[in-house]
Design a protein around this nucleic acid. Structure first.
Lengths: 225, 225
DNA sequence: TCAAAAGTGTTCAGGGTACACCCATGG
DNA sequence: CCATGGGTGTACCCTGAACACTTTTGA
């Protein structure tokens, strides 16, 4: 029985996280400056190696928590990246994940300790490894998923204005959305609910704060933005 | 630099293939009876270990070619499966792929030599490992993709009748489709073209054979079934 | 009083859905 | 001549897209 395995090779298995967040209203990802070879000094995604006593998913959670201080984060697997020379140092198979985090709950100290920075998705520098490919796949997956699944709310504070929601959707899509059509769609959804609160930080008139009700969403699982 | 890697663990990395084909008009997948421990004697997906001199994608291609004799097959990665105990024998991280093959071009001898059999997607027996999970994810991915991307033609012969196409779509969806609406959609697509040939094997009247034109599809990349 | 963001409805076109009958032919 | 699968058109509804002005209020 052991023979069945022994004739085969073993590999390092890594995880890489594409962490999306709203930094001052701008859709951004969290990048770190690598402190080790290979690719030392280059910007890169946050990653780590899978350990023997954790699943690959758990490794990704661990890396994310280590960097952000957050647990229970929305995270989805993007896929495995297994080109022979994707890591110039050693043969490493990497499994990429993307995560959507609420910027306000972030542990900023943990971020600073890792030399990490939020960088707008339109200002991403040259990255090492196959990270540019991972990021473009993550953006594609995010674009495809967010219109039919209520995941954008992971990026927003619990209370948000419709303008905030719209500009976030526009940032993800990379194009503008008609305001009246957007608000009609959104206010027709039972799972997006107005609250009694008004936010006056972004306009003199003030904008009504809304919230996403997951329990309402669970009733029919209908969502379309 | 080597230190960066050395403190970490290595893993076996495997690939598993969910191979879809149309067996006598029934959407089926190719399963083999395992000849080795662990899970010996159980039905399972065709898989194999990744070698040092091939990418993960190449390993999947190799496994597929070995079993079917086919190259240049439509194949897409489903994702990595990395639970600690997913393989009862050893820690193995597996990357799953699904493939759509043309049943007529299959090398039946290669299939027999691997103790493999086509099994309808509604008659799948108990499988070992996490293969049931992989199959359900593959079906979900196939269902989501085939309506907007012209991939079903990989399952059909080069010339096919609209009835064949419709019953294939129904098998993938798991529900019936209105004949007139389906034919309207399909015949409006420029990339699905009638030919001069008539197939008389399935009816007395005979049905017109159509073909998918990829060059026409490339013109506008529009497709909706 | 004015600048800046919030909020609000209607019209129209096109796509999706529901639906039932005749055709051609081999046996 | 009949059983079997092949082939065809219309009416309605609903969704998605285009489009511009009024309101509120702090400075």
């Amino acid at each position: 029985m052991t023979d069945y395995y022994l004739k085969n090779s073993k590999f390092y298995v890594a995880v890489d996280c594409i962490i999306f967040g709203l930094n001052n209203g701008e859709l951004s990802i969290l990048l770190t400056k690598r402190r080790f070879e290979p690719e030392k000094g280059k910007w890169s995604l946050m990653g780590g190696f899978v350990g023997e006593n954790e699943s690959v998913d758990e490794a990704a959670q661990r890396v994310l928590t280590d960097l952000t201080g957050l647990t229970n984060v929305y995270m989805e697997q993007l896929g495995a990246f297994g080109a022979i020379d994707r890591d110039p140092g050693e043969r490493v198979v990497s499994v990429a994940y993307y995560a959507l985090i609420n910027f306000d709950e972030l542990d900023r100290r943990a971020v600073e300790e890792h030399d990490a920075r939020w960088i707008g998705i339109n200002e991403i520098p040259q990255l090492g490894f196959d990270h540019p490919l991972m990021i473009s796949k993550a953006l594609k997956a995010l674009r495809e998923r967010f219109t039919t699944s209520p995941i954008v709310f992971n990026l927003l504070p619990k209370l948000f204005t419709l303008s905030q929601l719209q500009s976030l959707c526009e940032a993800i899509l990379g194009e503008e959305i008609d305001k009246r059509n957007f608000r009609k769609r959104v206010t027709d959804l039972k799972c997006i609910q107005p609250t009694e609160f008004i936010d006056k930080s972004s306009s003199k008139r003030g904008a009504r704060l809304h919230r996403f009700s997951d329990t309402t969403y669970q009733l029919d699982h209908k969502f379309k933005i």
